[in-house]
Design a binder for these strands. Structure first.
Lengths: 248, 248
DNA sequence: AATTACGATATGTATGTACATAATTGTCAA
DNA sequence: TTGACAATTATGTACATACATATCGTAATT
């Protein structure tokens, strides 16, 4: 079923006052419904904006917005001349919240504490520089930090910060706030790349995390930029017991 | 610096033809720039849409769209009456694409192949039942499957399917399509829970993935529901070389 | 003092219109 | 057959305008 969302007349200038607000949401919902009820099958071309607008009794722009937002979450695919079609592989995406370590630990009812292992200004190694697209000799801050939950190692953090992008950090001692928290608070970013993988703990990492060398660790890497200015690259290592969860 | 994005006259009906397209992107960029250059600091209230529209020489709706999209990625916070302010804690979330194994392998330029290790109808063990919230005795389909990239083991999949939720699957031999692909194609879901962790390969898993027992593996678990009907629970095991990436 | 009512205000959304842009299709010529 | 080039078309975006809605401050009421 698909009753017109708006009972408006057809093409005449609407006499102001009978507009139905929020209809782009209603249209979004209706389209979603048609997808889930298999009225429109994956891969199928759906009617054009003009047609849908006529069917729903609303403006084309309104349909446009509904479809645009559905395209954003990957449920439909749109191409100019070609039209809109239901995504073949509803390329679903999970939303992973990027947590502040402290909140994450505290959310589990554990006591949070961190300790700075090292903090030095130096040039980043080739690999890091390449990832951040920075020239040799760029001054960077290297901070290594251990996070605890109830005094048990929770995360080992190895971070490189592009000082020029966050000049205030040069004098930050990280006594009260971990680098993680500091950056979240004072260094906004617009782009981010994350990588998730499993790895075997090196001898040093194993010692720090109080596990056996070679034991599996969960590796979470993150690089962030503001516009195109690299900010920081961080490797976060968790012992095997860690589990990242997301539901939606 | 902030030259007006559009050189349009002030308030008179624009004589059609001198509009600047894409200006909402330009405005977005300009605002991002001001954030990154700390013209506007975190927590600060920025001018209203009306003001910005006047400054940029464009329509309020255009500024609205720019700001709306910035709010979507969490860089600014907007409240009616209260105005727009730069986000204090750009509490961001990463979007992890949930791929179809085959596409994922092929996207890396490798050749995809899978093989079914086992396929049996039986009752699920307690742990799985609990996770899916199903009663003892519920008939389920248990499928174990190995996915290859260029003939090297890529993923070991251990899946439980709630037959009542997807009755058509009872007779599916998975000869041409892997369970993963079949479900993606024919079993829509509305809710999903994913878990990411690192683990040590058991002897059996190690044999299947052609790695050493105890070697680190990347474990990706997923449970899906349609409304509140459980569909499937799957454990996907990747050898250490696997890396899940997301950028935006 | 606490509660309620109300007006002011910034953002939110809908509409008709106009033009922009990408991609497909058809046409014609080499 | 092929390559170049238009014509076509669906989506993409801009704008002026109008109304919707949430929420803050303030004034009136309890």
């Amino acid at each position: 079923m698909s009753p017109p969302v708006v009972p408006a007349k057809d093409g005449d200038p609407v006499p102001a006052g009978i507009r139905v607000p929020n209809s782009f949401r209603a249209i979004k919902a209706e389209i979603l419904k048609r997808i889930s009820e298999r009225v429109w099958l994956p891969g199928e071309l759906i009617p054009g904006e003009e047609d849908l607008a006529r069917e729903f009794g609303c403006a084309r722009v309104t349909v446009n917005r509904a479809l645009r937002e559905l395209a954003e979450i990957g449920l439909v695919e749109r191409k100019r001349r070609a039209g809109t079609r239901i995504a073949e592989h509803p390329l679903r995406e999970a939303r992973l919240e990027i947590p502040v370590v402290r909140s994450e630990v505290e959310a589990r009812g554990a006591q949070y504490r961190f300790s700075i292992l090292s903090r030095e200004r130096l040039e980043a190694p080739e690999g890091i520089r390449a990832r951040l697209d920075l020239a040799a000799g760029t001054p960077m801050l290297h901070v290594r930090c251990l996070h605890f939950a109830d005094n048990r190692p929770w995360q080992y953090e190895d971070r490189w910060i592009h000082i020029a992008a966050v000049p205030e950090i040069a004098d930050e001692p990280f006594e009260r706030m971990s680098p993680n928290e500091w950056l979240v608070k004072f260094a906004p970013f617009s782009e981010m790349e994350i990588g998730l993988s499993a790895a075997a703990a090196s001898r040093e990492e194993a010692t720090l995390l109080a596990i056996e060398p070679g034991a599996p660790v969960f590796l979470f890497e993150r690089t962030t930029w503001l516009i195109d200015q690299p900010i920081t690259h961080v490797r976060m290592l968790h012992p095997q017991s860690y589990r990242m969860v997301s539901r939606f």
